[in-house]
């Protein structure tokens, strides 16, 4: 009789609809252009000090320092932007639907509450992914441009100073490691994973808080706890070696089951320094990301499924 019955109802498609909608909603909120604008400025400002630094200083450490600087100045704004945006946009979405009562109209359709939550989160993740991909592209282009300049200067200087081919080649390899590598893409993925975890945390908090501000503040607190819990744990265990009981180890373990341990993400700094990222490290990060996002989404669902509006 109705069209609805002749088409098989696919859950994936419904999730995509909710996610796509959340994505457009966020894109049309101008505040995020503003944030993105800052990140672009931050990355693009790397272009400005090109002339002074591409002279003879480009040889050796100076050239590599320059490349490191670009990476850290790019990944810094990317981290800041993605974490702030992941938290704030998630914290905005739910209270807005409750306040405008648009939530009634959605939940009055045959939409399971889990799909609603997961769809919203996926919309935020899509936004994070797209903006990080754009910034990543910008960073890679910049790095490539500078890298080729640095390599050129190195080669000509090396020859004029009569270095042997092995020395030039080894310097070249060292410099290439500072350019756009797979490890660098891994670091960008790590930035994305961390912001995804933060978005999922913000989702959980916003299911029981009705204010965006509260959600944002608590999420940032958890972000900092995530960064310092490993330090605190190390300090505690090293300081009181004798008194470290099994109980306190379990306590630390269970803390890290609930609060994400962002120590894993220190690999980003290592990549900026030119170290490579092992595949196993990347797999670990991805699994940790999936674990935390799934845990927080399911917890959100538990809170949200009993909620009345």
């Amino acid at each position: 009789m109705t069209a609805r019955k002749s088409i098989p109802f696919s859950r994936v498609r419904r999730l995509a609809v909710i996610a796509g909608h959340a994505f457009t909603q966020l894109v049309r909120m101008k505040v995020f252009y503003f944030l993105g604008f800052f990140a672009v400025i931050g990355i693009a400002s790397n272009f400005f000090n090109l002339p002074q630094q591409s002279g003879p200083e480009a040889l050796g450490d100076n050239g590599m320092d320059l490349l490191r600087l670009i990476k850290s100045w790019s990944l810094g704004p990317m981290t800041l932007f993605s974490v702030v945006m992941g938290i704030v946009s998630t914290a905005l979405l739910l209270p807005k639907d409750v306040e405008d009562r648009t939530l009634y109209t959605i939940l009055a359709k045959p939409v399971p509450r889990l799909d609603y939550l997961a769809g919203k989160l996926m919309g935020v993740l899509l936004l994070l992914f797209v903006s990080l991909a754009l910034m990543d592209l910008l960073m890679v282009i910049m790095l490539q441009v500078r890298l080729s300049i640095v390599l050129e200067v190195q080669a000509s200087l090396g020859q004029s100073r009569g270095w042997d081919a092995a020395a030039i080649e080894s310097l070249r390899q060292d410099t290439l490691a500072q350019g756009p590598t797979w490890a660098l893409q891994g670091a960008v993925a790590a930035v994305f994973i961390r912001s995804a975890i933060m978005a999922a945390i913000a989702l959980l908090i916003s299911t029981f808080s009705s204010s965006t501000l509260f959600t944002t503040v608590v999420s940032f607190l958890i972000y900092f706890i995530g960064h310092f819990q490993a330090d605190a744990r190390d300090f505690y265990f090293e300081g009181g070696e004798a008194g470290t009981s099994a109980a306190s180890r379990y306590l630390a373990m269970s803390v890290s089951l609930v609060f994400p341990d962002f120590q894993l993400f220190n690999v980003i700094d290592a990549v900026i320094q030119g170290k490579t990222m092992q595949l196993i490290q990347f797999v670990k990060l991805t699994l940790a990301g999936l674990y935390y996002v799934a845990v927080y989404t399911i917890a959100s669902w538990f809170v949200f499924s009993d909620k009345e509006f």
Binding site: R4, D100, T102, A108
Partner: peptide, 14 residues
């Protein structure tokens, strides 16, 4: 909810 439509009080949409 498959066979029902709802118009809430003072509705507001996106």
């Amino acid at each position: 909810r498959e066979d029902v439509g709802f118009l809430p009080e003072n509705p507001y949409f996106y």
